[in-house]
Amino acid sequence: MHVPPGAPATVLPPAPDAAVSTALRAATRAGVRIRLAEDVRTLEAVSRFLAQVWQTPESHAPFGADALRAVVHAGGAVHYTADDAGIQAASALIFCPPVTRAVYSLIAAARASDRGVGFALKQAQRVWALDQGAETMVWTFDPLVSRNAHFNLAKLGARGTEYTVDFYGQIEDGVNGADETDRFTAVWPLREPNPVRLSGPDLTTAEIDPRRAPDGEPFLVRDGSGYWCRVPADIVGLRRLNARLAAEWRYAIRDAFVPLIAEGCTATGFSRSGWYHLTEGERA
């Protein structure tokens, strides 16, 4: 972590061995080495990579090299890994208010053919954050993107604690399209994350909401463990093929989630079959 001249430095305990071991195993399985980007040339490469992932011109990348340089200089971190073809994955972290003992992941991305690189990147972020004294990591994600929901909740063990309507406003890129940018806030306990595998609800016994998803099937049910809410398998592809239908999914999911989160529910899991699990009294 960069400490400007004259600023006091605090010696903090290192990340627990278990977190370090998890990060090393993840990197080994993915065949990568996660590094910290600090020089301008590397930060420029990271910025170009982010533009490719979000399908924007390099001049309108989600984060320019100048912004990434400021993140590093302010004491945050830009992690990356690369191979002969260039950057494979990258992320940027900053600190939340001191009282929260949390870091905020501004952005994280990996190539489509991930092979566990994204997981390795996240574990490297975790070790770095723990080394700086953080206890939790916070970020936002599109609640309609099922692969991200599964990664964040089922694989990492984060929880969705807030649902914000049109968080960023309209974003002109190739991923969000013209859709509104509703976002879930994910909170990841860094010391003892608890990822769980879920099979989804049993529709033969669950209480099914009379509303139907845009595909005509049930998408909101309740059973003894809480609520379940289904999202489409590939909203990014749907936006390209049928923006109107994608927007209908957005409004349906919004109408389901907003009141449940307001009542105190938390998204605590996500099934392979595309269902969020929401439980009451589980705030992270």
Rank of each mutant, 00 (worst) to 15 (best):
V258Y: 11
L12I: 12
V72Q: 08
D39E: 15
R254H: 14
D83A: 12
L238T: 08
H150T: 00
R183S: 12
E282Q: 15
L153T: 05
F257C: 15
N152I: 07
V40P: 00
H2W: 10
E263D: 15
S47K: 09
I107T: 13
P14T: 08
D142Q: 08
L220E: 02
C229K: 00
P14K: 10
R25I: 11
R25W: 04
A186Q: 06
L144C: 12
R283S: 08
W188R: 01
E135K: 14
Y163N: 05
R101N: 11
V127N: 05
A284L: 03
G75W: 07
W249V: 07
R111K: 14
I94D: 01
P259G: 11
T10G: 00
V78G: 05
E263M: 12
K122H: 13
R191S: 11
P62D: 11
A27C: 13
A102I: 03
A246C: 10
E263F: 00
D39Q: 14
V165Q: 10
G264D: 02
A267S: 12
V127K: 06
A65D: 08
I208S: 03
W54V: 01
P214V: 05
A252W: 06
E44Y: 01
C265T: 03
Q125G: 08
T100M: 14
R48I: 04
P8N: 06
P97C: 02
G160M: 05
A9G: 09
C229Y: 00
G269M: 02
A15M: 10
S273C: 02
G274H: 04
A108N: 11
Y168I: 06
R283G: 09
G200N: 03
V46K: 07
A108M: 09
P14A: 10
R25E: 14
V32Y: 06
V72Y: 09
D202P: 06
K122L: 06
A65P: 14
Q55G: 00
V196Q: 15
T268F: 01
L121W: 11
A129R: 02
A67W: 04
T279K: 02
R250N: 10
D83W: 09
H277N: 00
P62V: 10
A129D: 11
T279F: 00
A37R: 07
D173M: 09
I94Q: 10
A61D: 06
L190Y: 03
P16R: 11
L190T: 04
Y168T: 07
M1E: 12
